[in-house]
Design a protein around this nucleic acid. Structure first.
Lengths: 336, 336
DNA sequence: CTGAAAGCGCTTACAG
DNA sequence: CTGAAAGCGCTTACAG
């Protein structure tokens, strides 16, 4: 069985390949092709089970109807869920999504951008790594539509859609304060990315407002450390600061490491310490006790980012740059 | 900034496009192109930051250096991990992987096969859905390399690589027996796929050997049910069979539903009941108590499947069909 | 040692 | 109303 081409159909239907192309692309009527011919061509295409070659079409038109989605780590549930929703959204407008993980690595991000560029995707949705700003500028110069998600570069003129990280952390911290917690710690990664900074700001401002901010209760973990290192860091931090009665973890993997650390140390939640983590995760639901979290508005983020991308694709010359903030949701469970 | 093509380089370097093509593909020496010219062309390509168009190359050669990976659900950690390892393996031999999820749906699987076919991937790695046998035959007829993973169709002549499900379930069941459990239940999905059947067989044979097999301790859950339905099914099953002192869950999502059910019912692990689940998952490690599991040999499966695929790609006419069984690993934790 | 040309499977401006 | 032809960016057999 060989691949059927437009030529085979033309021969079989006794028309020219142009006619076949017009019919296949539903331009038959517009081009004034007779209904009889349209019907015949469609019949033959059906019979031979014709599938257009995406590759030939792409080469000719310069379009691929595909989107490159670059996330930090597809095996992290937050990104997996996000990818899944973006894929579904894209599918509904007949676009394919190619996804890949940077692992937080700048070099790998750059490589991935290049492969996707080579694959000629029509647009990019990216969770940028720390130093990717210039590379994204390059994409812009190539007139490729780009939308950043989850984080962004404050000074850069690029559309992005992120959770309102400041508000979410602020709300969570106030929730802990209202529950009577006095010594509220925070665990952050040391990446310095804007979304992490905003979360920490939201936390700090809530405490400062009450006059109970204590810098020594802030733990910064090295970016891209492995789980064991993280656990050890949490253990030593909490051994040193025994007065802590609540903690806010600023990402789900930090939260997971924290829970394992507490388990190891025999610290009881919420008796000894109240816990809130960013980003919901199966394990948080299942944990005994179940863990209070700030869930990202994954659906909102996905829908909005596709929408922004489409508006750029429609007219690369005069689209609006839009910075979209979506509200997170505090899901209260047993850990506070 | 426009896209640089082979033509731009030819003009700039003052040679023909053929020469450029040979140099770019490292065939310069073989074609007897002078070192000086090679150097010049490479220099220009570098300077202009030339990236070959994958699409044009594909159209011309019929190859894309890409693999289609169709899994059941990329948001399931087992498949996510598997995809990640396969991607890394593929990358090491300079292949790209496109992954997508069937959700267990035959129709969706078929659609995905077609899009990947249209994208002209060089080979397929597939976790087939229930009724995909014929569609896979079609791939074979099109001379497309295929490797099945995680499951297969017993009568079909296709290479596959799966865990030794029978042995794994048998070992786990014997482990429970040796711990003194008498009424060992099993929770399976009702999909009827061979890998699930083999797991159940391994369980059954272990019990039969001791003469303690009891058919009423087998729970079959409807395939593709949602988590709530699953939890309800587990609850009602365990309320009816209060004599159960151990249970084997045959997939990780069944295990997760089971744990949530036990939590709801106030059943204590391992005091009231011993638990083992197939497929390791973050939540099993983190759970209190941590859950004993049969971990799939993800690395082995990934490496072997890429290897089998490559041997088919190398020579589609006379490759060997290989049915590869990889041993699972019982990871003993606190739940037994 | 290097170049001109055909062709992969499409789309579309042009001609009739 | 329909067809012949150019061209997307490559690779490669052929010619010289």
């Amino acid at each position: 069985m060989k691949k059927i081409t437009i030529k085979d159909i033309a021969t079989e239907a006794q028309v020219s390949i142009s006619t076949v192309s017009f019919v296949i692309n539903n331009k038959g009527e517009k081009m004034g092709i007779s209904p009889a011919v349209i019907k015949k061509v469609q019949g033959v295409a059906e019979k031979l089970n014709y599938r257009p070659s995406m590759i030939a079409t792409s080469l000719r038109t310069g379009k691929t109807r595909s989107i490159g989605l670059i996330v930090e780590d597809i095996s992290n549930q937050f990104f997996a869920d996000l990818a899944r929703v973006i894929e579904d959204e894209a599918k509904s407008i007949d676009y394919r999504v190619f996804y890949c993980s940077t692992g937080g690595d700048d070099e790998r991000s750059e490589e991935l951008m290049h492969s996707l560029l080579q694959a000629n995707v029509d647009g990019f949705i990216i969770t940028p790594t720390q130093n990717l700003e210039e590379k994204i500028d390059l994409l812009l110069k190539l007139k490729k539509p780009v939308v950043l998600i989850d984080r962004y570069f404050p000074g850069q003129r690029v559309s992005h859609v992120v959770m309102d990280n400041y508000e979410a952390a602020n709300t969570a911290t106030n929730f802990l304060i209202n529950k009577g917690c006095k010594n509220i710690a925070v665990v952050n990664s040391s990446s310095g990315m804007v979304q992490m900074k905003l979360r920490e700001d939201g936390y700090r401002d809530a405490l400062k407002e009450k006059g109970i901010y204590d810098e020594s209760l802030v733990l910064h973990m090295e970016y891209r450390s492995n789980e064991e290192t993280r656990i050890a860091a949490v253990v030593s931090f909490f051994e040193k600061n025994t007065n802590i009665d609540a903690v806010l973890f600023l990402t789900n993997y930090l939260g997971l490491a924290g829970l394992l650390a507490f388990k190891k140390m025999g610290i009881k939640i919420p008796e000894d310490i109240s816990v809130i983590s960013f980003d919901d995760h199966d394990s948080f639901k299942l944990h005994t006790p179940s863990i209070t979290v700030i869930a990202q508005p994954i659906e909102d983020i996905a829908v909005k980012s596709i929408q922004l991308l489409m508006s750029q694709m429609a007219d690369m010359e005069k689209y609006e740059i839009e910075k979209s903030l979506k509200k997170g949701k505090l899901i209260i469970r047993e850990s506070v």
